[in-house]
Design a protein around this nucleic acid. Structure first.
Length: 300
DNA sequence: GGTAGACCTGGACGC
DNA sequence: GCGTCCAGGTCTACC
């Protein structure tokens, strides 16, 4: 067994990242007893499981024995997934005088849990649209079960594995080798199937470098436009993806957002996206963060 | 640029 | 059981 300790820029809080949104509940993530598990497909074709826990200065990753290049890959991926090197000093300073965000620095709020690839995050974001969370979980589970690659039998049997179905998130190539009709019928993603297939196909065929957006220097507005060129990504989805990419100047306004803001300031009456924008306008470059980590009085 | 309506799914609810 | 509604939206046609 291999243990890798990875330091984080302070302040850092493991539970705050894991609980930042629902990704921990979507395959191939699994969260239980303070351990975040994830099955990953390395570039060397090996499929390994990470068991990630809180450590004094960051996180600790337990996995099987890896060579040096694999260790570097795992280090890079976990650093990205947890945003270990991200700096939220300015957001924490701005939050200090807002009672609804005063806990931000103490709880190290700001980071959101990411998947190793933007491809996985885009697919899962599309799975969250216009459906129930339980259905989103089903879609993710089925996609992993159908197209993912299993841990080797030896590793799946080891006490390290906490998962029922030990498969990695599928590569674009694996999905592109299928068809939209098969994806629709087998994964039960409905009208989202052509969008998932199209994205996978464009990446697999080398026509589109989605992962390059992780390090893009485009202004946020341009980056948003770029994300909206992806089928199935409308006005809501890019705001969610921009948060994942560390851009916080857009609010993911969905039915949940409208409900929260309505109960916070409008006595539960129906409102539009304009009211949500207006309430968080003053947070400027941090309005996505302010919205995301707001201590809502309504919790329904 | 704003808006209406169709679109998959599956859990919740009322009958 | 069965029908209807709705949920962490998107897309297209139309005005």
């Amino acid at each position: 067994m291999l243990k890798i300790a990875l330091p984080a820029r302070r302040p850092f809080n493991f539970p705050s990242v894991v609980n930042s949104h629902g990704w921990r509940q979507l395959a191939p993530f699994h969260f239980e007893n303070d351990v975040l598990s994830y099955v990953d497909h390395l570039s060397t074709k090996r499929v390994v499981e990470y068991r990630i826990t809180a450590a004094s200065a960051g996180v600790q990753v337990e996995t099987e024995k890896l060579n040096k290049s694999e260790q570097r890959e795992v280090t890079d991926k976990i650093t990205w997934m947890f945003g270990l090197d991200m700096d939220f000093t300015n957001f924490h300073a701005a939050s200090r005088l807002e009672p609804k965000l005063a806990r931000a620095k103490k709880q190290a709020l700001g980071r959101v849990l990411r998947s190793p690839t933007l491809f996985e995050d885009v697919v899962k974001t599309i799975f969250t649209t216009n459906t129930l969370w339980a259905v989103t979980k089903n879609m993710s589970r089925k996609l992993v079960d159908e197209f993912g690659i299993a841990l080797s039998e030896k590793n799946a049997r080891s006490p390290l594995s906490a998962l029922e179905n030990n498969k990695s998130f599928p590569t674009p190539e694996a999905i592109a080798a299928s068809t939209p009709d098969f994806i629709k019928e087998k994964i039960r993603v409905g009208y989202r199937a052509p969008a998932i297939y199209d994205l996978a196909f464009r990446i697999a065929s080398g026509k589109y470098d989605l992962e390059a957006l992780k390090t893009s220097s485009l202004p946020t507005l341009e980056l948003r436009k770029e994300l909206m060129t992806i089928k199935g990504v409308g006005p809501y989805a890019p705001a969610n993806l921009l948060m994942i990419l560390g851009r916080h100047d857009f609010i993911p306004i969905d039915s949940y957002a409208l409900k929260m803001v309505s109960h916070e300031w409008y006595k539960g009456k129906p409102i539009t996206a304009r009211e949500v924008e207006r309430r968080f306008e003053k947070w400027g470059a941090y309005k996505g963060l302010a919205f995301w980590f707001w201590d809502w009085k309504y919790n329904g």
